[in-house]
Design a protein around this nucleic acid. Structure first.
Lengths: 383, 383
DNA sequence: TGCTTTACTTGCAATATAGAAATATATGCA
DNA sequence: TGCATATATTTCTATATTGCAAGTAAAGCA
């Protein structure tokens, strides 16, 4: 435990702190930068020069109307100075995107996984990297999986792949001569939201994802919580409704049972006696179908309870919602808000619920974000 | 929000980091220290000298049997080089303790509060400080209150005192010429557990207190979470049992209703039709009384659920339990353990529940710990 | 009495930093 | 147009911090 201390407090060169600050906080004045980093303007000039010369940063000309003295030249990163690849692995598919330094998506491709053998999966990743490669090389590759990852290198446990202790980073690095970082999918998404998404500017916030499952990530003190616990999907079976349906593990009314796409479809299908798609469920509810409405309203209430629990116990005031299973909020947003309010101290700050516009930052981009973050620590110095 | 960034990243002089490390990690070799702080041995020698000369640190002679070379002289703090005062304010009493640098209790005194007027409360604190003062001056005074505190100076809101925006630190400093720090009581306790108590050596853990109310504190990334949220008692009304009794706010089966001393007494009293003390309830249960047993077992289950929820959503694997209302665990420990297990992913690490032996670190010591921590940042340099 | 091993210290060169003065580039106004 | 004023950034320089490498201290062991 105590050795974590030292590891956590990893040294960061001042020039990478500078680069990171500019990357996250967009075009930014040197004077502001100096204050943020606790450095003098003189030092800032000296630190910035090699980054400007190296083409990582540029001075942008900002015409501030009515300003008196010499006009400021804020610093900004040249977003496409580097290119990254982000890969999200699920049980049957690999989705890859290329991104620039700001995690903005370039091109995208996906491939089915022929098997769960490490060699096959690596081959697919290599294939995707080759397909998406252009004249610019990848500075780093990020890969995210649902499950536990240690040290950004080894997949300790990935249920959907049936993996335990698989050295994925080494295997991919052996083929593509590029640094590879592996991370849990929700941790990666939280990291992306923190630097590039709705969590930008917040020191503490939580990320909840709803889709095939429920994911939960946490950023505290401007650091993503990425203990071994983080990869377990601990928000996935949180008890929310003692009268709700069962999940596949037998929990009654847990977050998986109340919120996921398969469970919502399943509930409606059982009641209607026929198969329905998730989109159909939303349609039915929109048209006043009582079954669909009941199920989605219960989901809204459950999500509200989950958000309140997260806000209370993780002590965050901002919660980012993401994932493809949030469509029900169009129908049950009011139920969610009411449930949050009910479980929240009236003296407490209202929970700030931020809705990630359907996949603005995708899972694969999250993987790329991890690669970007880890790379930033060394980018300033070397390549 | 973004300004928090800079504030959070408060600069700490290397010599105070050194002093802090020695304070927390007891007698410690220079070589270990150098590694932890990421400094060379040479630098360590230089940093340590003024602290040794100043009498804050000493070299202890440790006879390691069978060691080959020159024997190591680990560094340690001179615990009684400084003296601190910790004061805990409740609605009707002020409890004060003197402590050394390691938050070990010296002497203790308490006084009733004649009123909630700031002047009266300050007078009581000054009185206590004078009574407990000996030849050694206080380096700093810590005061903890139940409620929200900003900037370690102003009590924004303290329900038990009926305070809003009371500049307590200024008021006390005006009378006693000693630095005063104010903090929320649970935040202070968490800080004390982190440096001096059961949380020592853990980067992430939660603190739950059970007594007249339920308190909840969190340490993440080796920092106590002390946002404005932290002072609200957000763990205090967490829903735990949909069939439980009501709390004074009308929540059914919330943590207050299930766990606090008044609520447990109340439940038993209603059933038995007579007044009973908390100790009596424990006695009754010990002797097989079905009412007392039912109430305490439900409390055990509820506490287990709360612990599991905390471990899942705050992503901690260690939970420190403290407070005078934990007696029921003698009867219902098994129920607690079972409830934790039930709400926990089987793949997740077992939650490490640490029981603070009845008041080993008291509320007032927690207040002192805050004073110690804040003082350490400047101790090394100046006085 | 030396030799070995480990712990710590000192001298020195390299590096980083802040403060002050200098420089650059705008506006406002006579 | 020319000059005062304002603001942003850079250069110069003294000071401080650091790590490296060499040196010293304090033991055990032969």
């Amino acid at each position: 435990m105590s050795s974590v201390d030292a590891a956590e407090r990893r040294y960061r060169a001042p020039s990478s702190e500078l680069a990171r600050e500019v990357l996250i906080h967009g075009p930014i004045l040197r004077s502001v930068l100096a204050q943020r980093l606790g450095l003098s303007l003189a030092t800032l000039t000296r630190l910035a020069r090699p980054l400007l010369d190296g083409g990582l940063l540029v001075e942008v000309n900002e015409q501030l109307e009515g300003a008196m003295g010499r006009p400021a030249k804020p610093l900004d990163v040249v977003a496409d100075a580097r290119q990254f690849l982000g890969v999200k692995l699920t049980g049957d598919t690999a989705v890859a995107v290329t991104t620039d330094l700001r995690a903005a998506e370039g091109s995208r491709a996906s491939r089915p996984l022929p098997s769960h053998e490490l060699a096959d999966v690596v081959a697919v990743i290599v294939d995707l990297a080759r397909e998406l490669a252009n004249e610019q090389e990848f500075s780093a590759i990020g890969i995210s999986v649902g499950g536990q990852v240690s040290d950004n290198r080894v997949v300790d446990r990935a249920p959907f792949l049936g993996w335990r202790g698989v050295p994925l980073a080494d295997a991919v690095e052996a083929q593509l001569k590029v640094p590879v970082m592996v991370e849990n999918d929700v941790v990666a998404l939280a990291a992306a939201e923190h630097w590039f998404g709705l969590g930008r500017g917040f020191s503490n916030f939580a990320v909840l994802t709803v889709g095939a499952g429920v994911g939960y990530g946490l950023v505290m003190h401007d650091q993503v919580v990425s203990t071994s616990q983080a990869g377990l999907g601990l928000g996935g079976h949180f008890p929310l409704d003692p009268t709700g349906p069962l999940c596949f593990l037998g929990h009654r009314g847990c977050s998986t049972a109340m919120l996921t796409i398969p469970s919502i479809r399943g509930q409606v299908e059982v009641a209607l006696g026929r198969t329905v798609s998730y989109a159909e469920v939303l349609d039915l509810a929109q048209n006043g179908n009582p079954v669909a409405l009941a199920v989605l309203r219960a989901a809204g209430t459950a999500l509200g309870r989950l958000i309140a629990a997260v806000a209370n116990l993780a002590m965050v005031e901002h919660v980012v919602l993401a994932g493809e299973g949030l469509g029900f909020l169009e129908i049950a947003r009011a139920e969610m808000d009411a449930a949050i309010l009910a479980d929240r101290d009236p003296e407490a700050v209202e929970v700030d619920v931020l809705l990630e516009a359907s996949g603005f930052i995708s899972w694969a981009q999250g993987a790329a974000a991890v690669a970007i973050q880890r790379t930033m620590d060394t980018l300033a110095a070397g390549g």
